[in-house]
Amino acid sequence: MDSFIDFIDMYSWAMLLSIFVILGASAFLGKHLWVRHKKRDTVLSEELGIILGATLSLFGLLMGFILSIAIDGYNNRISAEEYEAIAIGNAFQRTTLLANASQQTQAQKLLHDYLDLRIQFFDTAD
């Protein structure tokens, strides 16, 4: 569980907390306004129910689109990492085609350095 908490950056936790506080405050404010409004008119409350239903439907669509975009971005990133790994593997195989042994050694050393840098990039938290 600790590694999962460490995996999520501070900005995500701050966003989660702020959304939770804003939604809680909105629900509290809505309850108090509804109690004051409920005493007034039933026709107005029916119209408010229609508006509330439409707003919640649009909110559901928005959340669905956001989730779809996030999943698509994640899949694209995973595909890009896979393609990069395949390209690095192909580069290692093609170093054997070099005629000079010193060039093969130099090319393999450069590829190892590049691979170490890429691994270091993915190991960083931010």
Results as ranks from 00 to 15, higher is better:
A99Y: 05
R36Q: 12
K109V: 07
I88A: 06
D116A: 09
L67G: 11
M1L: 09
A25W: 01
E47F: 01
L52P: 00
K109I: 09
F28N: 10
G49R: 02
F92V: 14
W13M: 07
R77L: 12
Y114A: 12
N76V: 07
V43L: 02
M10R: 05
W34Q: 14
L33V: 08
G49T: 00
D113F: 02
D113Q: 11
F121N: 09
A99P: 09
H37A: 14
K31V: 13
H37Y: 04
F28T: 13
E82S: 13
Q106M: 05
S68R: 04
Y11A: 15
L58Y: 01
G30E: 07
I8H: 00
I22N: 06
Q104V: 03
G73Q: 10
A125M: 05
D72T: 13
L67W: 00
E46H: 03
A27Y: 05
D9T: 06
H32N: 14
D123I: 05
K109P: 02
S12W: 00
S102N: 12
M10H: 04
A125K: 09
D126Q: 08
N75K: 11
R118V: 05
E82F: 08
E84D: 10
Q120W: 00
E84W: 03
L97A: 14
E81D: 11
S26I: 08
N100E: 14
G73W: 00
I8P: 04
F122P: 01
E84G: 05
E47T: 05
A101V: 10
W13I: 08
R77K: 09
E84R: 05
V21K: 06
I66Q: 10
F28G: 13
I8T: 07
L110A: 15
Y83N: 14
F92R: 10
A27T: 08
Q104R: 13
E84N: 12
L17T: 11
E82V: 13
D123K: 06
G89I: 01
F7P: 03
T55W: 01
